[in-house]
Each structure stands twice: as C-alpha cells, then as structure tokens.
Simulated assay, not measured.
Amino acid sequence: MTPSDSGTIPDAEPLAAAADLGTALRELIEVSVTTTVAAAEVRAAAELVRQATERLAVARRTASQLPALDDLTTGRRVFNPVTGIGSALAPPLAVRRDGEGVAAEVTLGVAYEGPPSFVHGGMSALFMDQLLGSAAAAAGLWGMTAHLELDYRGPLPLERKLALRARVAESAGRKCVITGTIALADDPDRILVEARGVFVMPRPEKVDAYFGSITDSTGRHAPPRRPSDATAVDERD
C-alpha cells in the first residue's frame, strides 16, 4: 500500500484485510479459552489454524522493518498490542481526547482472565502504560516509559465495560509525569486501578542506538524522529 503524491492512501483494502484478520483472530482466541467441544474437535481446529499460519508465513517482515500499514507521523500502529486493529492481542482500545487528557472504554473477555472472572493484573499495567503514553502524545509530548507504578484498589471484572482515563500531571525538560485510572464505566467515581508513570525523552545518542536500524516497509533506512508507543488519539471530545 503506497501513498500517492498527495499523501492519501489510494487502496484501503490491505488495511481492511488486516483489520478483518485481527477481528477473526480475537474471536478465535476468546472461543479457544471458552470452548467445551470434544478433544477431537479441538485438534481439528488446531490443524486448520496451522494451515492458515502456513499461508500467512510465506512473506514476512523483520522486527526492524515497519509495517507498510503503519504511519508514525499520524500515530497509526496497526499491530500495536493494545490499540492495533490488526493485532490479535489488542481489544483493541480506541483512545480519544477527554478534557485535558485522554480516555477509552473497553470490555475484556475471558482471554484476559487472571483470577477467575477477573482481569489479569498485568493487563491493567499494559493498558495503563499505553494510555499514559497516549496522554503524553495528546499533550504534544513524548518519551519512553522510565517508571510505572500501579495501585490495585479492587479487581476488574471480566465482560463489564471499563473506563480508562489519563492526563499529564507534570512536565519539565525531558521528563513528564502522567497519571491514570481504571474504573467501571457505570461507576466511574470508584477507582479500581490507579497508575503513575514517568516518561523520559531519550537523548539523541540513545534514540540512534535504540532505533537506528529501523527501516520502512521497502527496506529504506527510516528511523522514527519521535519514536513512541503512543498511538493515534481521536481528536473529538
């Protein structure tokens, strides 16, 4: 998928196909951890999955090569494990501006289970890290996570809509402090998870060391100028 001279994408089919595959894989993962069919059916399904894997594996990019579908200038990361529409790991989370920060809602299925019927605590850390980074990006800042701490005030139930919020609390020089919360969407004032993160903008030599080998989808050397895990934020309030 190659942008035209105007910067637009003439053919949206590859992006739509990646999103379709991502959706199908998320459905498969959720069913795979809840199915009660006989072992023979499970084995037959596993063989079908292996066949699909073989079809997709005939052409692959390396880890240092950006996907053709990504656009770092706009924050589009199609395979991000939290917000990527093409990722089987992502819910995916749609992050939007919310007052002075950002917000998102998500309902997590059994694939995200830790304690029976509750979300795995590590998932809270993953989602908060992403949302805090998105809050930094929305404020015109960027950086990499230097410190992340969470207070778990109560378990997050599965299959209930959760409300996530984050905002920049402090910013000075290369460092910013960002706070975030997770609560039930229908009880937003009762905070179940509280997060605080310190994000630091790497010095130029560190950026070169970390990202100097990155190429675009054609193999051309293209290290990102503002590397970040933060993805696109919906500008609508």
Rank of each mutant, 00 (worst) to 15 (best):
T23Y: 11
A44M: 07
G180L: 01
P155N: 04
R77M: 12
D151R: 12
E149Q: 11
G219K: 06
L89H: 10
R225E: 14
L141E: 04
D98R: 06
M144F: 02
G22V: 04
L162P: 01
A52K: 11
P204A: 08
R167N: 05
V200Y: 02
R55I: 11
A135T: 02
I29P: 00
T2D: 13
R236V: 02
G121H: 05
A16N: 07
A183D: 07
P10C: 12
L93W: 04
L192D: 13
R43I: 14
A103N: 05
L131T: 03
A90D: 04
I178G: 08
P10D: 09
A18K: 06
L158H: 04
L156H: 04
I85T: 13
S213P: 04
F127E: 01
V207N: 03
S171C: 12
R153N: 13
D11C: 11
R43K: 15
A94G: 06
G154H: 00
T181W: 02
L48S: 15
G154C: 00
L108W: 08
Q51T: 14
P92K: 04
I214G: 09
E30T: 10
V207T: 13
D216I: 08
P188N: 01
S134A: 11
I85W: 00
D129S: 07
L126G: 01
R61H: 12
A90Q: 03
A45H: 04
A232E: 10
L72Q: 09
